[in-house]
Nucleic acid binder design. Structure first.
Length: 363
DNA sequence: CACTCGTGGAA
DNA sequence: TTTCCAAGAGT
């Protein structure tokens, strides 16, 4: 009901049309933002860049894009790469399910679709790791199909120019802005408009906006009513919980024991050391007891070497407290999913950022 | 569908 | 220091 109330507003639609025309002019003459994939028509490169930029700043994702294109110039080369090699290239970029889905989709296109990237919106949307935003981005940039992108920039721009206070992180808000974004997409200009509105949101209509340089300030409802800093509205506040990871870095004859995370949890598919997780900060006594109880490692079977290494890693919903303790074993042991790697070979394993930093600093 | 999945930079 | 949030998607 609310959606129709807004969409039936002729004033809003007219404002949206005017914004589209002025945005296209701005994009042609005043948009100075440059990115290596801008104007790119190779769907592989567009797809790769869009996956990498999900919830990721351009400056952070750009070096990864360059690395991937250098290593895998074509989608078939990506499809043929070993998992661990690709994860190693993705290491540090975060949201590692993107990497898993990237590989699955590359192999699907290379071998099920004979290397031909889909060119219909519904087929693009069906790809693993591709949602409404990425499908619209690929469809418009590669094929100029009439699909409007809706990302954080677009939410911000639309909520401000129209003065819409409906929370963008609500179901109602998502439907409303999806409909509105599509409704004001200029005919035949999907690629330029989509690129323009995201650049506009990133360089002018930023969280802290530069309204004095904005071409639309005179028509912007938020600016005219002094609400540009209050929009968009988000209603949900995220909860951050503490977790305590105690890593036992087992060493024997120049080798280190590592294993791959397999649970549906943070850092799925990445590597780590033998882990004891506790609900509260753990004392060495507690860890030593667990070490003996769970894996039969008595205090006589190892020596503590080096110093305790402690670090905190903040994730979106968690604050992980990591402790590392090096243990030199008298005898090697066999544990499920545990593999002994040469220290020099650790650089081939993809680790979470905090563990990689530990490896570089201490091993 | 509410919740979860990293990391880095800015305010 | 803490908080926000950035070219979102999967479940």
């Amino acid at each position: 009901m609310k959606k129709e109330t807004v969409m039936d507003n002729a004033q809003l639609l007219e404002r949206g049309y005017r914004f589209g025309q002025e945005l296209l002019a701005w994009n042609s003459h005043d948009n100075k933002r440059q990115m290596p994939w801008k104007g790119e028509k190779d769907p592989y490169k567009i797809w790769l860049s869009e996956i990498m930029l999900q919830q990721t700043r351009v400056e952070q994702g750009l070096p990864y894009f360059e690395k991937f294109i250098a290593a895998y110039p074509t989608i078939r080369q990506l499809a043929d790469a070993p998992d661990q090699e690709v994860f190693k290239l993705w290491e540090g970029l975060g949201y590692y399910s993107r990497c898993r889905n990237l590989l699955a989709t590359a192999r699907y296109i290379a071998y099920e679709l004979d290397g031909i990237f889909p060119n219909k919106y519904e087929d693009i949307l069906a790809l693993k790791g591709v949602g409404p935003y990425t499908a619209a981005a690929i469809a418009s940039f590669a094929y100029n199909l009439h699909h409007a992108v809706l990302d954080g920039n677009v939410y911000r721009v639309l909520s401000r120019i129209h003065g819409i206070g409906t929370p963008t992180d609500s179901a109602v808000g998502k439907n409303l802005f999806t409909t509105l974004a599509q409704a004001q997409l200029p005919d035949g200009k999907a690629a330029a408009y989509n690129q323009g509105i995201m650049d506009f949101g990133a360089t002018v209509c930023k969280p802290l906006p530069e309204c004095s340089t904005c071409f639309f300030a005179d028509d912007c409802v938020a600016f005219q009513t002094g609400r540009q800093l209050a929009l968009p509205i988000k209603e949900k506040q995220l909860q951050v919980s503490d977790r305590f990871f105690f890593y036992l870095v087992l060493e024997h004859e120049g080798k280190v024991a590592v294993r791959q995370r397999q649970a549906k949890d943070i850092w799925l598919d990445l590597f780590e050391f033998l882990l004891i997780e506790t609900p509260e900060p753990a004392s060495w006594q507690l860890v030593a007891a667990e070490l003996e109880h769970a894996w039969g490692l008595s205090p006589e079977s190892y020596q503590r070497v080096g110093t305790r290494y402690v670090v905190k890693q903040r994730l979106t919903h968690q604050l992980v407290h990591l402790s590392f303790e090096r243990l030199a074993l008298n005898h090697t042991i066999e544990l499920p999913q545990l593999q002994w790697a040469d220290k020099a070979a650790l650089e081939n394993f993809p680790f979470p950022k905090a563990i990689k930093e530990y490896v570089l600093a201490e091993l």
